[in-house]
């Protein structure tokens, strides 16, 4: 492992969310500006002292029960949330696949959504124009190009989104339950893509409730429980401990 290029180093990462009761109002916001800070009794500790690394060509799994902090971890790494403690060292651009098709607009056509979602996935219009037919063919939506997105099923939308997102070639890929939508054939094609990504030396971090998927793809795995790091290491050992706890 040590000879591989380091892409992501997380050290002592922690995140607290302030406890909130009801709607935020101007008066409350002013009071918070003057008094409140992250941490302390008025906060929920979503993540506590998490440390691990991901190297190029490696896929690391993140497992844990609901509310364990898996999505929070990915959003912290992506820069969507600000860490309360610890350090995130990123070497290269990253792409976050958190819910396929986020940003797609049901009232726009499939064609319009390809350009919009492509832009969200950091693909330039000129590039999308060049691969447009391939995107549609991979998604198997040739008959729906001019149809509004809302006429597509959830599975078809996920297929379209993945068909676009897979062209993002950022060296770090964060996957948040990205393969939950879609049928068996779709999942298999996604998996083929991830194998290809590993071959291209991409560093991948994948949260999943499917232990079978993590077992098959991830060399190392991180187990989170209520925001705390229970284990990080070889997948078989971590999953074995996780299964013991879960049962």
């Amino acid at each position: 492992m040590s000879e591989r290029v380091l892409r992501l180093r997380i050290h002592g990462l922690g995140k607290d969310f302030p406890l909130r009761d009801g709607r935020d109002t101007a008066a409350r916001a002013l009071r918070r500006l003057v008094t409140a800070r992250d941490g302390g009794p008025g906060c929920i500790r979503a993540l506590v002292d998490v440390s691990f690394e991901v190297h190029a060509g490696e896929m690391v799994g993140v497992v844990g029960n609901n509310g364990a902090g898996k999505t929070t971890l990915l959003k912290l790494i992506a820069g969507i949330h600000r860490p309360s403690r610890g350090e995130i060292e990123r070497r290269g651009d990253l792409s976050l696949l958190s819910g396929l098709g986020v940003g797609m607009v049901p009232d726009l056509t499939v064609r319009e959504n390809v350009y919009l979602y492509g832009a969200i996935c950091r693909l330039h219009r000129a590039r999308i124009r060049g691969i447009f037919d391939e995107i549609i063919a991979w998604a198997e939506l040739a008959d729906f190009v001019s149809a509004p997105l809302r006429t597509l099923s959830t599975g078809m939308t996920a297929r379209l989104a993945f068909s676009i997102a897979r062209h993002n070639e950022a060296p770090i890929l964060l996957l948040d339950e990205a393969m939950t939508a879609g049928d068996e054939r779709f999942r298999r094609r996604c998996e083929e893509h991830f194998v290809a990504c590993r071959g291209r030396d991409m560093a991948m971090l994948m949260t999943s409730h499917s232990l079978e998927l993590v077992e098959r793809f991830c060399e190392r795995t991180l187990w989170l429980r209520s925001g705390e790091q229970m284990a990080f290491g070889e997948t078989a050992a971590v999953l074995s401990a996780y299964r013991r706890w879960a049962s």
């Binding site: 607009v105 009232d107 726009l108 319009e112 350009y115 919009l116 492509g118 832009a119 969200i120 950091r122 693909l123 330039h124 219009r125």
Partner: peptide
């Protein structure tokens, strides 16, 4: 960069259409 400006353009166009 050009990719960012492309995103701004796509978001603007989609908001206008919406």
């Amino acid at each position: 960069d050009a990719i960012d400006l492309n995103l701004l353009r796509e978001l603007t166009v989609s908001q206008y259409k919406l």
